[in-house]
Design a protein around this nucleic acid. Structure first.
Length: 481
RNA sequence: GCUCCCAUCGUCUAGCGGUCAAGGACACCGGCCUCUCACGCCGGAGACACGGGUUCGAUUCCCGUUGGGAGUACCA
């Protein structure tokens, strides 16, 4: 079994393309097949090497490694279409010689007029086949080569997702298979490449379902057996319309930058258009063992960021803490943390905020307070006003006395030392926790008291609580006058 | 316009003629937990687009309508 993903380097790796790549990758891995990556770079005007680099990088980021293609080679190459240009001509000549294709030197204007006339008559706009039986030779001036599509009958294929798809040949144009510049267009090139690369299953988006009959016709004309097809539903925007930038991020790279984990993106992508009973959370390895074309759904799916965000948190909680911490580091710095202050408190710090954050960006913002100079804390004045007041001063003084004597600065040690004091004093834990939270973080919401104290470390904790105490004392003095 | 594809809660989906007074997940609402916010747990509201058939029986099969998507290039 051989599958392929064939992006054209004319833009970023789109989430729809990523899902197509994922489906192909999973099917290949599931059945011990081969996953081929082919670069369709024949659109010289729009293709750019930077895009190709980016696409390769993003596929690797998603852990969708290919067995043959750029960077890894393979026996069925080359894997860039620009390096395969000499493969196509002979087949076109063969079709011409066999009378299955013909040269056409009709002017663009003439063809255009014919199309408009047909459309006006309520018919599908097509070429009128003027040159079909003229038997034009190579010396007919500027010309294209068109496939002689059967006038009668129909062309069908059995799609693994949709069942039998059939279309009348009368609806299929005598489409171009060699442009006037000598290069064959997409429909011809994919067929030749897929055939020469031994592709057995073509899994792609539903937007290709309409040119599948044309491709089948080419396979037949060349005397080849078409591969098996499976057309996955398209990914739509949240409103059901075509997904576009106006709906937000559409490229894999953008989601990486927004702090999504590749594990979560893969998980979300696979579930949009595929299901396995009621299961929701899958690792790539789990997918490899259960993925099947049978699970692909037919209807287009809308992009739902909320579900992606939920899955991202699920994965942040599943990840090994040290791993998560390293992935969070750059986001922490981006949020304003001082790299020099990020020390071995990183892992415990990240653990205190991961269940409150849905992306690495949020994780970075929420863990920022651990690793900034005290004067760089982001103060929520409302919270300060509410929790650092005159009456707070004696509480913080009392707490400081307890804290200074703590030997075991761990969650358990801190709780064991402070709880008895709180109870003895007869004060609510909240009366202590909130002032401490504001002193440490600048905000009224955040991690639990014990875990936060333990994670931030004795030195910083005592320093910031003292500062909070002083602030409270100042208000006490102001109130007393 | 024409051709093709599609149609279960707001969203992703389970369902492959009776086991469905339609199940799960996200989001939403309420409660519990609780030092805040979360997490977690419990509960709630919420869907078979419509109309014809076929059948003893349709969410499930067929046709139509409506709605949505795609294609309609010497782009991929």
């Amino acid at each position: 079994m051989r599958l392929r993903f064939a992006p054209s380097p004319t833009g970023h790796l789109h989430i729809g393309g990523a899902r197509t790549a994922l489906f192909n990758f999973l099917l290949a891995r599931r059945h011990g097949g081969v996953f081929v990556l082919r670069i369709e770079d024949t659109d010289r005007a729009r293709s750019r090497p930077e895009y190709e680099e980016e696409i390769l990088r993003d596929l690797r980021w998603l852990s969708l490694d290919w067995d043959e293609g750029p960077g890894v080679g393979g026996s069925r190459g080359p894997y860039h279409q620009m390096q395969r240009l000499d493969h196509y001509g002979p087949y076109i000549d063969q079709l011409l010689a066999e009378g299955k294709a013909y040269r056409c030197n009709c002017s663009a204007e003439r063809i255009q007029q014919g199309r408009e006339a047909l459309q006006a008559a309520g018919r599908k706009p097509m070429y009128d086949r003027h040159c079909r039986d003229l038997d034009l030779g190579p010396d007919c001036g500027e010309h294209v080569v068109r496939l002689k599509v059967p006038l009668e009958g129909s062309t069908a294929f059995d799609d693994h997702v949709r069942g039998r798809v059939e279309i009348d040949n009368a609806e299929i144009d005598d489409f171009v298979i060699r442009r006037s510049n000598g290069l064959p267009p997409y429909n011809f090139v994919v067929v030749v490449d897929d055939h020469e690369m031994g592709i057995t299953h073509v899994v792609r988006g539903e937007d290709h379902i309409n040119n599948t009959p044309k491709q089948v016709l080419i396979y037949r004309a060349l005397g080849w057996e078409p591969p098996e097809f499976a057309h996955a539903p398209l990914i739509l925007g949240p409103d059901g319309s075509r997904l576009s930038k106006r709906h937000g991020a559409v490229s894999v790279g953008a989601y990486r930058e927004e702090g999504y984990l590749p594990e979560a993106l893969v998980n979300y992508l696979v579930r949009l258009g595929w299901s396995h009973g009621d299961d929701e959370v899958f690792s790539l390895d789990e997918l490899i063992s259960v993925f099947s074309l049978d699970g692909i759904t037919k209807a287009g799916g809308r992009w739902d960021v909320d579900k992606l965000r939920w899955l991202n948190q699920v994965w942040m909680k599943r990840l090994d803490p040290a791993d998560l911490a390293e992935r969070a580091r750059p986001f922490l710095v981006a949020a304003g943390a001082d790299p020099a202050l990020i020390d071995d408190r990183l892992v415990p710090a990240v653990l205190t905020v991961r269940e409150r954050a849905r992306t690495l960006v949020e994780l970075g913002e929420q863990a920022r307070f651990y690793f900034v100079p005290d004067d760089a804390l982001d103060w929520d004045e409302q919270a300060v006003k509410k929790h650092i007041k005159a009456s707070t001063r004696p509480i913080l003084d009392g707490l400081l006395a307890v804290l200074e004597g703590v030997e075991d600065w761990s969650q358990e040690g801190l709780e064991a030392a402070v709880k008895p004091w709180v109870e003895a004093e007869g004060i609510k834990l909240g009366k202590v926790a909130q002032p401490v939270r504001v002193s440490l973080t600048g905000k009224g919401v955040g991690p639990g008291l014990w875990e936060m104290l333990a994670a931030i470390g004795r030195e910083v904790a005592l320093r910031r609580i003292r500062a909070g105490r002083d602030k409270a004392a100042a208000r006490e003095a102001a109130a007393g006058r």
